[in-house]
Design a binder for these strands. Sequence first.
DNA 1: CCGACCGGTGAGCAAGCGCTTAGTGCGCGG
DNA 2: CCGCGCACTAAGCGCTTGCTCACCGGTCGG
Lengths: 208, 208
Amino acid sequence: MTATEEILDEVPWSGVSPDAARRLMVAAVEAFAERGYHATTTRDIAGRAGMSPAALYIHYKTKEELLHKISTIGHAKAVAILQSAADAEGTPAERLEQAVRHFVVWHAGHHTTARVVQYELDALDAEHRAEVVQLRRQCDAAVRRILTDGVKAGDFEVPDIPGATLAVLSLCIDVARWFNVAGRRTPDEVGASYADLVLRMVGARPRS
Amino acid sequence: MTATEEILDEVPWSGVSPDAARRLMVAAVEAFAERGYHATTTRDIAGRAGMSPAALYIHYKTKEELLHKISTIGHAKAVAILQSAADAEGTPAERLEQAVRHFVVWHAGHHTTARVVQYELDALDAEHRAEVVQLRRQCDAAVRRILTDGVKAGDFEVPDIPGATLAVLSLCIDVARWFNVAGRRTPDEVGASYADLVLRMVGARPRS
DNA sequence: CCGACCGGTGAGCAAGCGCTTAGTGCGCGG
DNA sequence: CCGCGCACTAAGCGCTTGCTCACCGGTCGG
């Protein structure tokens, strides 16, 4: 099994139990991704899960708690993907290639989840948002570490490492916005293409 | 006056009249950018404009019409920036540099407007959304034209022109999401930096 | 000097929202 | 075969929402 298949096979909330709570979470992810958090009603979520509106409140205190749980699970996965690439063996170019490819494959393959995770952050209340922002900083740190290593080794040519880190993450994250299952590109293709684009952005010397 | 200053000086809705309608539009842009379309109430918009809730409906039929007008004006500006760069004299690299720089300067300098324009599209009703999607296609066409010219001239090395077009626009658009006035970067700096990154992405030969 | 006009207001309607509560059906230990 | 616990529902509460409407005050042509 390839790393790509691993990323796509795993349903992010497979660890959520009981079954009814998971069904509600899946329904919420779909609804939030389609219409946005504020435009989604608790009745809509419960309806998609085949339950009455009140059932939601047996498993979650509020609608916002649902979003918070989704966001936390999603961000944890993002951090795991990027840190795993940053910690991997190999040249900085290989690690950056892996980071971007896996990160993009995840955003494309799970674009409904990713859309919620990346674009509904403002709907969280202050405390929960602060929690999630911490996880995002870890994403930033992982990418920055790879770039720094590459510059130190003389493999990358990057005048502004924080700026380049931001641009790389921004490029990958925005995949969740435009990726469309009906489109011609598979997650794998986008991942490979984006890895190539990013290596060029950081001025990686072609492998000899 | 530099092109950058021109882009930033012009308030996008300076052509909106009468004065009260413009004040309402400015208020709506701020509110939509801060909290999102669905989380913004008509009372909030009217309040920011210093008017009663009912005043909104003298100048706009619905809250959605306000969003539609904002979106149309914003997209028209985006199309103008990109087409102007595509039509400009100069090498493909120079035209691409100008397109990205001006587009990014606009997204950073008017990041509240840009956020609404780029991220609240789904809140439009079907007919209005279709209208705006047409304008977005023109953005795509302008960038694609520059890339095609560059490849034909042998100046760029791009294996997948539609894919690269998408990536370039995606990178620029996402600036509206993360750009923060309190941050250290000015719109000009981000624009210059992003133009450089994009030229690398398309494998532009360094100018001789 | 007047009355038509028009941008703006105060009050409020119908609908829909997040969430609660009293009650129901069902599985399971004794 | 009973009765308890619990996941779940029907009904609905209090509130906010987008939007409306009767009314008001300043301006201006005649």
